[in-house]
């Protein structure tokens, strides 16, 4: 009897290896939406913004990242949703040539393992300020690990650009990771939700 008890005890000990209950996780539940901002920025001091015409697709081994040439089918939808949110926060959309206070760019990492943010974040010429690089007021690379399908939205201060050091300050940076697993997996509602969450969790972005 004693031996039985002991054997039973060890059997229970060893068999309880699954420490937690199993849980099913959908792809959608893995989406992470992060928003960072420059805490010295007064967002109500800006009035106008311009946004890129198309989403920048970033591909590995393609040399420099290049603006989407039209095959990224969510490009227009994303740009329009970001604009709507900006307008509802009190900003006025203007064209890039009308000296906007803020610039917004949208990028999608279309290939895995691009590397750190700085590799491509300052893609020269993307904003028409050739030779300028992006400057972040925080250690941006420490927060995220960039995966394939990551959507990155940057807001740049064009009012106070640094012409001496040729720097454009990023005042608001958003990363939606996990959104796009493969080209067939692009999901409109997930992208829409991610963009809306970026604004919801950033109440300070308002005129």
């Amino acid at each position: 009897m004693k031996n039985l008890l002991i054997v039973l005890g060890y059997a229970l000990l060893i068999s309880s290896c699954a420490k937690y209950p199993a849980d099913s996780v959908t792809t959608e539940e893995n989406d992470i939406i992060g928003s960072l901002y420059n805490q010295n920025t007064n967002f109500s001091s800006y009035s106008t913004f311009a946004i890129v015409d198309s989403v920048l697709l970033i591909k590995r081994g393609a040399g420099e990242p290049e603006p989407d040439t039209g095959y990224f089918r969510y490009s227009d939808r994303m740009i329009s949703l970001i604009s709507q949110n900006m307008v509802s926060r009190g900003y006025t959309r203007v064209s890039k040539d009308s000296t906007p206070d803020l610039g917004i760019d949208v990028s999608v990492l279309n290939d895995a393992n691009i590397g750190s943010y700085t590799y491509w974040g300052g893609y020269p010429g993307y904003w028409g300020w050739y030779g300028y690089s992006y400057w972040y007021g925080w250690p941006s690379t420490t927060y995220y690990k960039y995966e394939i399908g990551t959507v990155v939205i940057n807001m740049i201060d064009l009012q106070n650009r640094n012409d001496v050091d040729k720097e454009l300050t990023v005042v608001w940076n958003n990363v939606a990771a996990g959104l796009v697993a493969s080209s067939s997996n692009y999901n409109t509602s997930r992208i829409d939700r991610a963009i809306n969450i970026m604004f919801e969790q950033s109440p300070y972005v308002k005129k």
């Binding site: 420490k19 849980d23 992470i32 992060g34 960072l36 805490q39 925080w138 969450i197 950033s202």
Partner: peptide, 18 residues
Amino acid sequence: SYEFGGGAINAVRYNYLY
């Protein structure tokens, strides 16, 4: 959304404690 100094992160959260 979980706020922290200088931003926020929105995610489904899984907490474990053994």
